[in-house]
Nucleic acid binder design. Structure first.
Length: 443
DNA sequence: ATAGGGTTAG
């Protein structure tokens, strides 16, 4: 009897102590996190100062307090700091895990997020709608259908199929994995939809080349229920028009863009430019571009690519110089367009020079996609030996290999280079075997 | 406290 009451007292004392501590923490936070000066409140030093103060008050083992900090570092892309804090936590909760996973996705390492999710599942922490949305997002980025299906199953298991955000991210995930029908099934099963769900589905169609279906869905979209289309939706609709190659619907979409006042939006303008270029109207493409006051890297890239399509390689290179002069930094996609520009205009030496300086001058490390573009370029002009040499010189993942060797194969077929074609198809088979091998292994 | 949609290559 005595023992039990003693234990009971001890327990309530502990509970009180915890409540007290929680109160202190809340006060501490309203002081440190919300009273700070807004302009500085989001930078590294403010995070660092909170970090220092938590360290001094030895609260770094406290989950809720540390979560704020993990989240902050994650948002600042300071993933190592976030990770270290997480590792020190004796009892990470679902918020800690989610923040860290989102942080890894943010720095372009979604595979780590998936790995963390696996670890979380093996711990006692149960996923919630935030965690599942975040991992679904990681699967989208990686186009990992196998894990994605598993996440979908977890959504069902944890009774979250009624959550709009979770389901929209599933639609997006299936779309990015090229499983449009599956995406549609999830979309149709949703009882609550909003503009994001609709956009995800339209995007899923547009990105898998089903422009017609995308447009059809857009016409079904009910403005009176969900509000007017926003720039996300319109960008996707314009993209759908370029993938269906229909100038008529493209012009209608352009009309809608103007009507809703988004014609100065960078991203939408780029989509419009791409649409006109693909439909054979480079004049319109250029017109849209010249209407943008301060084009960012995206419309510049669209313009470079558009010019390249029409054999205006010199113009592409001039645009590259122009953007650099204006202080707009080219990115990895820009440099995917450059080989394309050169292969259509006999400017190969320029191109190789630019690719060599990609890293040195612009700090962009060429990856498999860039090499594939150069291989494509060399292939087009018939320099297949050089292309083969280049293809062999790099390490690629199986899916990248399939693309790389497929490119070389079609180029060597085009030029009747039997030996290189044979080599390329051997490599292609190898890549495909690796791909299906992974599939079997994971099934 | 933590979560979702758009563009630019082939």
């Amino acid at each position: 009897m005595k023992t039990t009451s003693f234990m009971g007292n001890l327990l309530s004392a502990l509970k009180n102590a915890r409540r007290w501590r929680q109160n202190q923490l809340t006060k501490f936070h309203s002081k440190t996190l919300h009273a700070g000066k807004p302009p500085e409140s989001n930078d590294f030093y403010s995070a660092f100062s909170i970090h220092t103060r938590l360290l001094k008050s030895s609260l770094l083992t406290h989950t809720t307090a540390t979560n704020h900090l993990i989240n902050r570092y994650a948002k600042l892309q300071e993933i190592e700091h976030a990770r270290r804090l997480f590792d020190e936590l004796p009892e990470p909760n679902v918020v800690s895990w989610t923040s860290l996973m989102a942080g890894y996705i943010g720095v372009g390492r979604p595979e780590v997020a998936l790995w963390l999710y696996g670890r979380m599942r093996r711990s006692a922490v149960l996923p919630n709608e935030f965690a599942l949305t975040t991992v679904a997002n990681a699967c989208s980025v990686l186009a990992d259908l196998r894990v994605g299906r598993g996440i979908h199953a977890h959504v069902e298991v944890f009774g979250l199929r009624g959550n709009v955000v979770v389901c929209s991210s599933l639609v997006d995930m299936y779309g990015k994995c090229n499983e449009v029908d599956e995406a549609r099934r999830v979309f149709d099963s949703m009882s609550n939809k909003n503009i994001v769900s609709w956009t995800s589905m339209i995007t899923a169609y547009a990105q898998s080349g089903k422009g017609k279906e995308a447009l059809h869905l857009f016409w079904e979209f009910d403005y009176s229920r969900f509000g007017f289309p926003n720039h996300f939706m319109l960008a996707s609709v314009v993209n759908a028009c370029s993938s269906s190659g229909s100038l008529v619907s493209g012009r209608i979409a352009h009309g809608a863009v103007i009507r809703y006042g988004y014609d100065t939006n960078d991203v939408i303008a780029s989509a419009l430019m791409d649409m006109y270029a693909k439909c054979g109207y480079f004049n319109y493409c250029e017109k849209v571009f010249r209407r943008i006051e301060n084009p960012s890297v995206v419309p510049y890239t669209s313009m470079i690519v558009g010019a390249a399509k029409y054999g205006l390689g010199m113009l592409s290179l001039e645009l590259l110089e122009e953007m650099i002069d204006r202080g707009v930094k080219p990115n990895d996609v820009t440099f995917l367009g450059i080989p394309h520009a050169c292969s259509h205009s006999g400017l190969v030496d320029d191109d190789l020079a630019i690719l060599e300086s990609m890293d040195k001058k612009y700090g962009i490390i060429p990856d498999a996609r860039h090499y594939t573009c150069v291989v494509d370029m060399l292939g087009r002009i018939g320099r297949l030996d050089k292309a083969y040499e280049l293809a062999k010189s790099i390490q690629v993942r199986p899916e990248e290999g399939a693309l790389l060797w497929g490119t070389l194969l079609s180029a060597s077929r085009l030029h009747g280079q039997v030996e290189i074609a044979t080599e390329a198809s051997n490599w292609l088979i190898k890549s495909n075997q690796q791909l299906s091998g992974f599939a079997e292994f994971s099934a």
